[in-house]
Design a protein around this nucleic acid. Structure first.
Length: 459
RNA sequence: GUCCCCAUCGUCUAGCGGUCUAGGACAUCAGCCUUUCACGCUGAAGACACGGGUUCGAUUCCCGUUGGGGACGCCA
């Protein structure tokens, strides 16, 4: 059997982090088993679904590199098929028309709660004569759920989960206006798309019982379900915005690399022995449902930062230079080349692309460059040293990293001062800061003319 | 309220009855490296929620308690 799975977001907002992980798991599972990974947009709630949200989700998935097979399926376009299924159930006597009003339903819930019973529809129209139907009321169509016994699903993550059928009420399949509900649409679409494995958030677990019964009524074999625990905030409660419940595009804006976010998300709720860092090929090779944990995980920015730092150090210099230039408003060819040369020293000192850009800014700054407070202090103290050093630098025949280092070290020794007493003022003059990459590297990247110019600016 | 799920260092996790004086990673602390800041390296501290069973033996199996989470729409 070929594995077919899907990611089915509803386009009512951005692609949030939990959705991204669900998509990643589905994608990995399909790739691991050589199957297909499909994308379906669940836009049946026309009021809340927006074009912008669809675009944001598609962009987010694309940025993460989770390519789907086949065309995107839009659920709203399949409403007629969904309604046909409900009609069939009605004809077969497995579903019925219900005329209960909103007020009646609310009363039922209130009464049930007061009496300590589950808050369910009581099935009052299940066996009632349709002749008694009130005039002018458009009925909904409800599924006849079994009223005794229990429903069990064999979940690939949660194990065997059972619920008493008394807990399940006759769910609505078709609304009063004839439009299908989510519960119906999902089942019909998954069937028609040939979905073999449904990997989704834990919040759908109770839906699985209802859907299981719907599959049975329609005479179809249900797929394998795998309900993945949700991602929580650092406090163990629901993930809030402040704690990471952001859209994928926000992580991008914050300066995270897609491969870092993917690696982080993969480790959140899934493990493979002591392994922490995974290439895409390894992730595909190792991922499977049995590695998914059953307890919810908390989102931790510190670990994401660490992972991002790792991937930053591994990334191609030219790629990073491009990302940095993007953040600094673009550069010309010379600027790009300078960034590429500067990158080895820069990337070891940043956790995010944003930090990388902040730290790279001085390389592109125009003379005279701005100087921060601590650097100003270093310059005030070190100006005499720079004055003495300048002619020696000007006389250096080859402007190279190691030559510069040799010169400055000899200079410090000759002056009988510590290397730091030279290096720090130099750093302040060249970078405008008290912190920067190695100072000889900075000089080499900046080049003779620019370096000497920046030093002269401070004398 | 009803039902379902979960429970190992602060966090992510390894562990699938004895190999556990419980392993790894992040974070924390100390040291090394060093022209600054990082990176890197070395080391330290740090957990089986609690109570009953089952067993020769429980972190691992069962039950309960407590604590978290989720679901109960003509939303998805």
């Amino acid at each position: 059997m070929t594995v077919v799975c899907r990611f089915a977001p509803s386009p009512t907002g951005f692609l949030h982090i939990g959705g991204a992980r669900t998509a990643l798991f589905n994608w990995l599972f399909a790739r691991h088993h050589g199957g297909r990974y499909l994308l379906r947009i669940e836009d049946t709630d026309r009021k809340r679904s927006t074009k912008e949200a669809i675009a944001a989700i598609l962009d987010g998935l694309d940025w993460l590199g989770l390519d789907h097979d086949g065309e995107v399926v839009y659920q709203s376009q399949r409403a007629a098929d969904h309604a046909d299924a409900a009609q069939r159930l009605l004809e077969e006597g497995k579903a019925y028309r219900c005329y209960a009003s909103q007020e009646e339903l609310e009363e039922m819930r209130a009464a049930a709660k007061a009496e300590g019973r589950p808050m369910r529809y009581d099935g009052r129209w299940r066996d009632r004569d349709p002749a008694e139907a009130p005039v002018g009321v458009a009925p909904v169509i409800r599924l006849k759920m079994p009223q005794s016994g229990e429903t069990a699903i064999e979940d690939a993550v949660q194990g065997k989960v059972t619920v008493a059928n008394a807990q399940l009420d006759d769910m609505v399949l078709l609304r009063g206006d004839g439009s299908p509900t989510y519960m119906l649409s999902v089942v019909v679409d998954d069937q028609d798309m040939g979905i073999t494995h449904v990997i989704r958030g834990d919040d759908h677990l109770t839906n699985a019982f209802r859907q299981h019964q719907l599959y049975k009524a329609l005479g179809w074999a249900p797929p394998v379900f795998a309900h993945v625990p949700l991602i929580h905030g650092p406090d163990g409660a629901k993930l809030s915005k402040r704690h990471g419940a952001l859209g994928v595009e926000a992580y991008r804006a914050l300066g995270y690399l897609p491969e870092a976010l993917r690696n982080y998300l993969l480790r959140l709720g899934w493990g493979h022995g002591d392994d922490e860092i995974f290439s895409t090929a390894q992730a595909i090779e190792w991922f499977d449902l049995d590695g998914i944990g059953r307890s919810p995980a908390r989102f931790d920015f510190a670990k994401l930062d660490n992972l991002n730092g790792h991937y930053l150090r591994e990334a191609e210099d030219s790629r990073l230079a491009g990302l940095v230039a993007e953040r600094l408003g673009g550069t010309d060819e010379a600027g790009h080349a300078r960034l590429v040369r500067a990158m080895p020293g820069l990337k070891a000192r940043a956790k995010t692309v944003k930090e990388l850009a902040d730290n790279a800014e001085f390389y592109l700054a125009e003379r005279p460059i701005s100087v921060n407070e601590k650097a100003a202090k270093l310059l005030a103290d070190g100006q005499p040293v720079l004055e003495k050093l300048l002619p020696e630098l000007e006389a250096l025949p080859a402007w190279e990293d190691d030559k510069l280092e040799a010169l400055v070290r000899d200079f410090a020794e000759a002056q009988d001062i510590k290397l730091g007493a030279v290096a720090q003022p130099l750093r302040a003059a060249l970078s405008g800061s008290n912190q920067s990459p190695g100072i000889f590297e900075v000089m080499a990247v900046l080049g003779r003319e620019e370096s000497l110019g920046r030093i002269k600016d401070r004398i």
